[in-house]
Design a protein around this nucleic acid. Sequence first.
RNA 1: GGCGGGUUGCCCGAGCGGCCAAUGGGAGGGGACUGUAAAUCCCCCGGCUCUGCCUUCGAAGGUUCAAAUCCUUCACCCGCCA
Length: 424
Amino acid sequence: MTNELIADLEWRGLLAQTTDRDSLLKDLGTGPVKFYIGFDPTAPSLHVGNLVVILVMRRFQLAGHLPIALVGGATGLVGDPSGRNEERTLNTESTVSKWVENIREQLSRFLDFDSAVNPAVMANNLDWTKSMSALEFLRDIGKHFSVNQMLAKDSVSSRLESGGISYTEFSYQVLQAFDYLELFRRQNCRLQLGGSDQWGNIVAGLDLIRKVEGGSGHALTIPLMAKSDGTKFGKTAGGSIWLDAEMTSPYAFYQYWINTDDADVERYLKVFSFKDHSELERLLDTVKVNPGAREAQRELAREVTSLVHGTDQCEKVEAASKALFGQGELKDLDIETLSAALSQLPKVTINRGEEFPTWVDLIAASGIVDSKSAARRIVKENGAYLNNEKIAGENFTPTEQNLIHGRFLILRKGKRDLASVEVL
RNA sequence: GGCGGGUUGCCCGAGCGGCCAAUGGGAGGGGACUGUAAAUCCCCCGGCUCUGCCUUCGAAGGUUCAAAUCCUUCACCCGCCA
């Protein structure tokens, strides 16, 4: 038995593990299946790592299935031990509930909630856990869990070896299992998706459903994104790449994608792009034939940035990138293009008539170096540029003559770190 | 509860009274090469009003001309014995 959706996911490298494959294929082939993915509020925003799973959700919806986006208002209060070797610090209820709202808003960008046929719905596990008493929980849910099995779960056993785990985090798998049970009961949800680190938690849910309701459901996990150089996907020296425009500017977001290694671009495109197979094959071919053109990276950056920040925003940052990294003279850019491009960068303003600060002071003020010492080091190491021209000497101070269109200066550190100065 | 070991810069980890802003590795940054890629090679990598000064070696006190290094107390971690 084959199924177009599953075959496609497999082609894209998005399948890690599933429960009984034939029966899953049968259900997916028979009609729309209700499925869910949970997102715990562990930060103010989702990040590009979450995007992998979110987009799989979108693929399921496009294939006609019914998504439930579950926000972990309850589980976020407890903390998932999966993939961590240390206990989490608990966040306050008000913090978590604020993050829940942010995550809801972000999820809503990727799913269709208004579809007449198969609209997505939101859920929050706080709804069925908040009012439950500890005694009810222990008697009705806890009774079905064998501690022996719970201890055997990777997420727990690895923690037992590395410094221990609190009762709170130990209970996490029970809470997540309970979620699946509730969604099974309330909405007839029969499939849970998640990152491959979630396998244990998902299966715990299936066990619970079998024991309590005698029912059965499916599990499907998605491989965790890895980079070819072994570093973590979605992280830079500056931290995570967030979906929130305040936390990671659309410009920085676009830059993250356009800087993708050749070695990774194929996997990324398959995971993040919604282009059809033949178009993807063509793009991947360009990587082999003319890697220098970086067409695949450009398309990847464009598609993901549009998806997350909208096509308007994407066009702006794309134009900015083109202008700032283009071969032409900055002076030749018209003022609208230039000022639009610069608006995407960290910015320092100085008042007209005031004396210009040194390059070092300006770049330090822009925040793209950590300290003035670091800024001086850059100059000493020959990585300091003003308007794309190298400057020499740490006392270098721009003058009126350097202003582009009488208003702007472009500071650059190294190859690609830019900031703008505007004289008002 | 008893005995012993540990806590060093973003991470790992040397140092065990002055030569220590502190060896080495990783991460990170700059340069060269190239393609806003990777690999490679070279350099840098606490801060500042920068030939000097200031703040760092779990915390607080103390000894000393001088402490990351010695002493005391406290906190946390890790072994062994109860």
